[in-house]
Amino acid sequence: MTTKVLVSVGSSIAAVVAAGTGTQIYQRSQQEREEARVATVAALQSFDQAIERVKTSIRQSTEMRDDLLKRTDALFKDAGSTEQELLDHGEKARELQKRHATVAAEAGKLVADAKRSLGEATAAVGVCRQILLKDSLKADQASAVQEDIRTKTAIVKDVRARMDELTRLGTRCEALEHSLAMFVQQNKGAVARVREIREEAEEKLAAQKTRHARAQEAADKLARLQAEMKKDLEAIKVAKETKQEP
């Protein structure tokens, strides 16, 4: 009987010791759980910070993209107005070509008239000189003819000078004709190029809007993920606080 009692006493002692060890294990387990909780919270906070950084990056790039969109849109509109203005320039150049044609025709006519007048005057001077050389005129008539020759010679010189001037104008007309033709040609090229730029700007604008939408979508995804994560994080914190209260 004593043995049984003593065995029971021994068992009780052992149980007390075991309870002490159990408490230690329990405390260790609690500590590990707390460490695990802290690690989880830290990891989630790290995720949250990473997401926040991405969101900031998206926000900054969105601002830049907005500016880019404005610039592209402005280019698209500018290219449109430029194209219209270049078409107007082409129209004006064609009007100038018409005016040039008129001027050139006038200049040609003037040159022809001047040449004819010069020929006539030269011929008249020649006839007068032949008369004088034959000496078939009387003395009083001879002086009048000589005077006439001097006058006609002066006219011939004047006509020749004006004809030279008209020739220079003719040269300028030809140069203008060439320049107008070149301008019209270049204008066609410029219009085509500006049209390309407008189309390119339009394409870029569409692509930028798509990118903007994708970035917005990404931001929304991140916001959702972040909200979900914060909710879970709060739940973990609340669980901890609730556990600590009792």
Binding site: R71, T82, A207
Partner: peptide
């Protein structure tokens, strides 16, 4: 795009200025 748009913008302005 930023670089491209700036280049195209400059080109457009140059074309227009030359034409004018």
């Amino acid at each position: 795009d930023t670089a491209g748009i700036a280049h195209l913008d400059a080109e457009t302005k140059k074309i227009l200025a030359t034409s004018r």
